[in-house]
Amino acid sequence: MTPDERGEDSAIDVPDALAALLGADTVWTEPPDIADELVARIEQEARLQGDDQPRPAAAGRPRPWRRWAMAGAAAAAVIVGIALVVNSADDDDREPAGVEFAIVGTELAPDASGTGVVQVRPAGFAIIIEIQGLDPAVPGTFYQGWVRSDDGDLVAVGTFHAREDNGPIALWSGVDLDDYPTLTVTTQQIGAGTGSSGEQVLVARFDGS
């Protein structure tokens, strides 16, 4: 019963249908707190869209990743270890050279595995991964990629749901992967905050160690 119906506010004429909508819980449902996550994901996509061609490295002594990427076009296996394969830029003129790495599932996703490639971009590192055997994120959750330093510092590199079949997933790191050599993927609850849940489902080392 609205105040109108109780005769307390007869000056206000609220049509029944409008009153019904004003009383619906959906009209008062709070939106999820995902603005930061959205912006991060969109900035990531924007960078990848804007950086689809390799550009020269900055002047000065190149960082190790940049040296790897440049050398990758000429001498792949010399530089990296057993788990690393350096793509030749001659393989596909549309793709910049990159360093490949293997991804393995943890005990939370033992059937999952995949490969990835790191591509050096002017503004950071594109981490393109392809995963098999990973269940789609259940409703209310998503997968979050992280890069981790050997000291345990984590930097978020992007989110995905794995709900579309077989497509590569583009993650983005603005930090140098020499300093953050481990990739992990965790399951996160929507609205549960921006920190890692600690529930790792995938792990990889960019340097193959």
Binding site: T29, P31, P32, I34, E37, L38, R41, I42, P139, G140, I190, G191
Partner: peptide
């Protein structure tokens, strides 16, 4: 609520 949150995120993306 969980599906609705997914829909909100997907809408803006």
């Amino acid at each position: 609520p969980q599906l609705a949150q997914d829909a909100v995120q997907q809408t803006f993306l």
